[in-house]
Every structure is written in structure tokens, then in C-alpha cells.
Design a protein around this nucleic acid. Structure first.
Lengths: 358, 358
DNA sequence: CCGCGCGATGTTTACGTAAACATCTCGCAT
DNA sequence: ATGCGAGATGTTTACGTAAACATCGCGCGG
């Protein structure tokens, strides 16, 4: 109702030309004229400032509605010197973790009255990243959240806009940036201990790609946990996070007669491992136990439902935003790493190892 | 190098205070002073306008570099009346399709020099959607792309900013908006025909949620294809896109003795169906064939690898951006629907039906 | 040899908002 | 009764950019 009335008014005002959509926007001055007040009063109403008597406020609000007034955020940003926007740099959104973190960031930012500008970096080369930062520098953002391996960010650092804070998710650059991350090590340790507690002699590992710090930390914790327990450390296999790479690795693991427990660095690769084991005739969990990492929504529907390490991506996103806003507020750079705890979700892909043959 | 030099200069200029990050930004006036020209000349250089002699241009560029100048996009947007930004309204990013479309949109927009502002709508109520549109109206966007079921958009329409074009993905509102969508009907028809061609008597259907037009269209096409072929149309089951709901439906389908072919409305539900069939002792594809929809990256690693309908989300995203830019350029609203074709990917979850028992 | 014209550059102004400052109008205390 | 102060509202100005308009200088033709 309201909206259409406004539209009607404006169409009428635009004269016989009609249909033109890009006529001048309704400004505070227009509202002020209509309401019979000054534009400053309109501004006060618009921003909820005190010191406007109730009758006046109502008049202004009425005028706003009639005209369909919307604040011009460009002018507002220019005047205030801030954009109320957070920029997000991210790699491809093909991994669940990135997506869920992104979603949480956007949601959390919105709750704080901030918009989010998305800057995907198609190819993870330093040139691409630097380009993204350059574009961000020209963009209207008050802070930047980076969801990516930070070593690709090094060369780009120099072109970082000097006035914006940076928060990095999923990285180890706590010495240079404010980092929010899942407690990869703790999660991996829980996964390995779970398998050892079940009675497995050792745990094989399907690692994520070399360039991922998250993958590296999971691998390190896997190795450390085995060593602490005095177990053999089998050579880890390496995948690229994809189910397909998990499948290939799984085929090889299926050939290892002593392999009774596998810790895959993410759920998608675990999915591939499950398929490979299934096709190789090795049953899960009776002959081989499998643990994943992430707890993606589908993992409860794998065959069998996957025991995995739950990551609280929402919390990661929330803390990223908090960190970004804190930096915006304080004008001071932050450093250091915040870890978000994980939780082991035990389903049906893990069990006690089979009784030793012979 | 360049960046750090600029930072050094500015730190020096800022005097002994040091460390303050939110000093005033370098403006065109600063650059102009440094280069010994007028700010208008700086503007011309900055925007690549002709009519600046080469030596002057070089001086200006040098001054920009020295000072670390970055255009203020707020002022630019205010002056130009456009933001070079596309707003994206989307539901939760839990479905692969939305995510991949989003990614394609952001990438494509960036290639056209446009930024993308993300506006997630947590709860798909009309109030939420309207709120999102209100926020977008205040946001700095030249066009809006909506990735959601459009009927939730109806009530919000009235508060649509009058100057921005709207493109909708995944909807049937071609009469009111410019819509880009996957050819749901064609894909569903291909899936069903594939199963019929294999010799199945009929095809059971696990539909998506009622409120999804995509789901509805897939269901309609499934029914129509069966009817065209003169087959029985079993009552469709309904899921909510999740693997878990697919599992529940799958358990019921496993009880149907005549059910030899299942068309699930998306891959995730198909995953759940596969698990349910497996646990019920019905082998895929020997006893039951299953087809999904989407071709998510993991579907090739399901057990067995899933035959599914591939959606070209990248193309959908690209066309959304093209449509949005066209509307920005022409100041005219567009309507009508653009369909992006699908492709049936045949893997190993489909086969000829088992020979009739007895 | 002078002026015309064009290309290069400078100056003015407006975009819409909101802070800072100015003014105005009451009510209340003296 | 009157003046003072607090609260309500109006006026001025600046944010950084870029269009529109103004000016300057130089080369070339008459």
C-alpha cells in the first residue's frame, strides 16, 4: 500500500514522460519540504536521534512514507566516513566450510547493521589475490574478512587499504592478523583418540591439500596423538578435499591389510573412502572404521552414517564479524588467534577393530 | 613496494602521533597538490578520460602512487548516481544450487566491474524478505538478483526500490520479473525418460518441498512424462531437500514391492534414498534404479555413483548478471524467463529393471 | 602579424547527508 | 512579571568526486 502510493506520487510528479525509472531519487530535502520541516529534522528522525517532538516525528515519518524516501547510502557513507560494510574475500565456494562460514558472516554482519560485499577470487594465485585486494581497496568497506589460506595473502599485504582491519578465517597468521579458526588440532586429536580408544592399533590418515593450513594442522595433530600414544605412524595419503580424491585414496587403503581405522581430513573425502571400501568389499565399521571432519549436513546420511568432527562454522563466522567490528570501533589492529572448539559426533562408521586374523 | 612507500609517507605526514589508522584518507585534492595540478585533472586521470597530456598524466599517477591514493567510492557513487554494485538476496546457503549460483554471480559481476552485496534472509518469512528488501533499498545497489522462491517476494514487492532492476533465479515469476532458471521440466523429463527407456514400468518420485517452484516443476514434468507414456503415476513422496528426508522417504519406498525406479528431486535426497535402500537390503541399481537432480560434486562418489541431471549453475549466474546489467543500462524493466538447459549424467545408479519375480 | 580555434587545464558547483552551530520558544523559578 | 535555561528546530557547512563551464596558451591560416 504505502510503497505503491509513493510510486504513484512519483510517477505523477515525473510528468507525461512516464515509465522512466531512473528519475532523481527522493532526498531528505523533498521529505523536509513535504513535512514542513528542515532537512536536519528529517535526518534526526531518520537516524533515531532524540530531540524531536513526537508530533513532528510523525509528520516526518508520514512524509517519508508518502514519498517512498530511502536514505542514500552513498551520501551517508561519504558524510560519516564509514560504509557499514564488510568485505569478504574468499576462494571458490566449493567447500562446505567456506560456504557456511560465509553465510554466518553475512548473517551476523546483517544483525549488526552491516552489509557484506563478496569478492570471490577465482584462481588462487597471488596476482588474483592482489587484484582482489586492490578492488577491495576501492570498494566501500570498513573491514575485510579473508576466508582462505593466508600465505597467498602475503604478497598482497602491501596493497592492503591502510584504514581497514583484517580478520582471517582458517589460517595460521595470528602473528600478522586477527585470526579466527576452528580448533583443528583439538578436533583431529579427538578423532584419533576415539579410534584408539576403540582398540585400533593405529590410525591411517587421508590428509587435505598441502597448501591448506587447516589440513596441515589436522595432520600434525593426528601424528602427534599417535606418537603420544606410542603407536606407529603410517605414511599419510593426500587428497584435495574432493570425494573423488577420497575414493582414489580409499582404493589404496583398502589394499592395506593392517588398516582398520582411517581418519579423513574432511567429510567429502571420507565419502569417497566409504565408497572405495564398499567397492573393495571391506565393510564399515566391522572391518574398517572411518572418521571424517566437518560434519556436513549430509554426513549423517552416508552409508554408514559418518562419525565425524563437528565444526561450528556459525561461531567462526560470528567471531570474525565481532573481530572486524572491534577493529572498526577501536581503530587499532588486532592480532592473535581465536580458536572455536569442535565436537566429535559419533555415528556408525566407527567400531571396535575386528579380532586379529589367525 | 609501492604500497609500503605510500604508507611510509603517510605515517610521516601524520606526525608524531603515529600508529593511528583512521587518519583522513588521501583525497584527489591531496594528489592534485602533490602533482601540482587541479583536482579535476586528477579526476580525469583516475577515470581514464582523454584530454590529459602524457607528461601530466604521469605526474598525477606518480603522485597517486606516492600517496597511496584510492578513490573514495562513496563520493564517486554519490556523484555518479550509481554504485556499481549488485545486491543478492538469498535464503540459507545450504543447498548446493544456491551456492553455486551465488558464486557464479559474484564472479561474473566482478568481471564486469561490479561488486556484489550479499543479503542472506535467515528465515524465509515474508516479513524477513520484506526486511531484506528494505535494507537493500537503503543499500548501495544498482540492481538486485533474488535467489529464492519468488512467492515469498510478493508482499515485499511494494517496498522494492523503484530505481533498481530485479532478476530472479529459480522462480516462475516471469510475468513480473526477469527470470533466469534451469530448465527444470526438461531435466526432469530426461530423467524419467531415461528410466522408462531402460524398461521400467513406471517411476516413483521423491519431490522437493511444496513451496519450491523448482520442485513443483520437476514434479509436474515427472507426472506429465509418465502420463504421455501412458504409465501409472504413483503418489509422490515429499522431502525437504535434505539427505535425512530422503532417507525417510527411501525407507518407505523400499517397502513398495513394485518400485524399481526412483526419481529424487535433488542429489542430497537421492543420497538418503540410496542409504535407505542399502539398509533395507535392496541393491542399486540391480533391484532399484535411482536418479537425482543437480549433479553436485559429490554425487559421483555416492554408492553407487549417482545418475543425475546436471544443472549449469555457472551459466545461470552469468545470465542473471547479464540481465541485471542490461536493466541498469537501459533503465527499462525486463520480464520473461530464460531457461538454461540441463544435461543427464548417466552413472551407475540406474540399470534395467530386474526380471519380474515369479 | 594577428586572431581564431582547439586542446589542455583550472574553477565552480551539485550530489545527499549529518555534524556543528545558531536560533527560537516555551515553562519555571525568582 | 521576567529572565534564564533547556529542549526543539533551523541554518551552515563539509565530506570527495566529476560534470559543466571557464580560461589559458599555442599553432596555423589569412
Amino acid at each position: 500500500m504505502i510503497g505503491s502510493a509513493g510510486a504513484g506520487d512519483r510517477a505523477a510528479a515525473s510528468g507525461p514522460a512516464g515509465g522512466a525509472r531512473r528519475q532523481r531519487r527522493v532526498s531528505m530535502a523533498d521529505v523536509a519540504r513535504r513535512a514542513g520541516v528542515s532537512s536536519q529534522t528529517v535526518s534526526r528522525v531518520s537516524n533515531g536521534h532524540p530531540g524531536v517532538v513526537d508530533t513532528t516525528r510523525r509528520q516526518v515519518l508520514a512524509a517519508m512514507k508518502e514519498l517512498g524516501y530511502r536514505p542514500n547510502s552513498a551520501a551517508r557513507a561519504l558524510k560519516r566516513g564509514e560504509f557499514r560494510t564488510i568485505g569478504i574475500i574468499t576462494f571458490s565456494l566449493s567447500t562446505t566450510g567456506n560456504v557456511r562460514t560465509l553465510e554466518a558472516i553475512a548473517t551476523s554482519a546483517a544483525q549488526h547493521g552491516y552489509a557484506t560485499t563478496l569478492l570471490p577470487v577465482a584462481i588462487p594465485t597471488q596476482d588474483e589475490v592482489r587484484g582482489a585486494f586492490t578492488r577491495l581497496g576501492e570498494l566501500a568497506v570498513d573491514a575485510i574478512i579473508v576466508i582462505m589460506e593466508v600465505h597467498l595473502l602475503d604478497a598482497a599485504t602491501v596493497s592492503l587499504p591502510p584504514n581497514v582491519g583484517v580478520v582471517v578465517a582458517d589460517s595460521d597468521a595470528g602473528d600478522r592478523y586477527s585470526v579466527v579458526d576452528t580448533d583443528q588440532a583439538g578436533g583431529a586429536r579427538d578423532a584419533v583418540r576415539h579410534l584408539l580408544d576403540l582398540g585400533h592399533e593405529t590410525v591411517w590418515h587421508l590428509a587435505g591439500p598441502e597448501e591448506s593450513f587447516a589440513a596441515q594442522r589436522r595432520t600434525d595433530a593426528w601424528r602427534a596423538t599417535l606418537q603420544e600414544a606410542g603407536r606407529d605412524v603410517p605414511a599419510p595419503l593426500r587428497g584435495d578435499w574432493s570425494a573423488e580424491s577420497g575414493y582414489r585414496a580409499g582404493l589404496r587403503l583398502a589394499q592395506e591389510p593392517h588398516c582398520t581405522a582411517i581418519f579423513a581430513a574432511n567429510d567429502q573425502m571420507a565419502l569417497g573412502v566409504l565408497r572405495a571400501l564398499h567397492e573393495s568389499g571391506r565393510t564399515v565399521p566391522d572391518q574398517v572404521s572411518v572418521v571424517g571432519f566437518d560434519d556436513i549436513p549430509d554426513s549423517g546420511s552416508f552409508v554408514p552414517p559418518l562419525t565425524t568432527v563437528h565444526q561450528d562454522f556459525a561461531e567462526v563466522g560470528r567471531r570474525c564479524v565481532e573481530g572486524a567490528l572491534r577493529q572498526i570501533g577501536s581503530d587499532a589492529e588486532e592480532r592473535g588467534t581465536t580458536l572455536v572448539p569442535t565436537r566429535l559426533v559419533i555415528r556408525r562408521s566407527t567400531a571396535r577393530p575386528p579380532a586379529p586374523a589367525g
